[in-house]
Simulated assay, not measured.
Amino acid sequence: MSPRSALLAVAAAALLLAPAAPASAAGAAAQTVDVSTAAQLKAALAAAAPGQTIRLAAGEYHGSFVARRAGTAEKPVTLTGPRTAVLVNDGPSGSGPACPAPTAGWDSGYGLWLYGAPYWNLTGFTVKDSKKGVVLDSSPHVVIDGLYVHHVEDEGVHFRRSSADGVLRNSVVEYTGRAQPAYGEGVYLGSANSNWDCHGNTGGADRSDRVLVENNRIGPYVAAEGIDVKEGTSGGTIRGNTFDGRGLSGENSADSWVDVKGSGYLIEGNKGTFAPPGTFANGYETHNPATTPSFPNGCGNVWRGNTSDLGGVGAYAIRITSVSACAGRPNVVHASNTVAHATGGLTNVPVTP
């Protein structure tokens, strides 16, 4: 072999043995899908892959937007955009199943619907003028950060059908219940026991457990509760939120910032105010539907460091509906909670230091 041939052979071998080059800029960009129309957004949601980012341009997106693709813990799917990127669903239309599920020819009317889509991040954008705002079904480990949800007919954000271990933070939810005030919760965790046949675990409770709701502004003009914590859920945290009770409707007992029917929740560092118009009874309430000895709903919850101004209308900052129902797992109200302008006081149960 000539010296030149030998040199070429060595060079070729070196190329074969060299480590693979890092992904090119073009390859990396494939992980980001930019959309600017409703059709592009629908296509991106339908094709979403773990680790991918779908990036919304400013503008309004009208349509039915459903995500059914799963991310992973290591590679969540991200849907992001500025607040001026606005999702609007002009539905509902067509006929759907008795238990809501994406169905051809039926528009749920939801602004954004994650169905069987765990490990998503939803950041920055707006949802408005829809039947419901953001609905999560069978979609655990979803992080919602910095969304603006407003002017929706029913609830603003719903963790449903065992969408556990989720997060809602740094978001604004206001002007809900525009068509049905009794169903206009700002944030809805779980499902009422009357809906467990649809949204429960094979007939059991809807275990949308361990959801963290923190640093949000909820209200004004949230027609039902700011947060409705449904029976059957447990282990969540409600922290650092601001509740503005103006516009509470009083329909279907919607007369408090937070109604806790779940168990084992930590409620701390929140600030609540009430002023007319609206119907207001107490800042925080507990109730005990579907309670059994093995599953005491509305029990074992802890309040600490919350600041409440009841506007001279509400009775208690924290009203525990039944002590006897939670005898084995009492609710605890710490002395670090404060109240102003209450007709009754801080709470109707003994305070824990």
Rank of each mutant, 00 (worst) to 15 (best):
G262K: 00
G298Q: 14
I267V: 15
S308Y: 06
G245N: 06
A315E: 14
D309W: 00
T242R: 14
N282A: 11
K271V: 14
S263R: 11
N282T: 09
L248G: 05
C299D: 04
S322G: 04
L266V: 13
V313K: 11
K261F: 03
P296S: 15
F274N: 00
S253F: 12
G298P: 14
P276L: 13
L248P: 07
I318H: 08
S308N: 10
N282V: 08
G314S: 07
A315F: 06
R239K: 15
G300N: 07
I320H: 02
P289W: 10
H287S: 13
H287P: 07
S256W: 02
G269A: 08
N306L: 06
K271W: 09
L266R: 11
T273I: 06
G300A: 13
N306E: 06
V323T: 14
G264S: 08
T242K: 13
P293N: 07
I318R: 00
G312P: 06
N288P: 11
K261Q: 15
S308R: 06
I320V: 14
F280Y: 12
T291H: 00
A290G: 12
I320T: 04
T292M: 08
D244Q: 05
G278F: 04
A275L: 06
A290I: 06
S263Y: 09
G305E: 05
A281I: 08
N301E: 02
E268K: 01
N288I: 01
N270L: 10
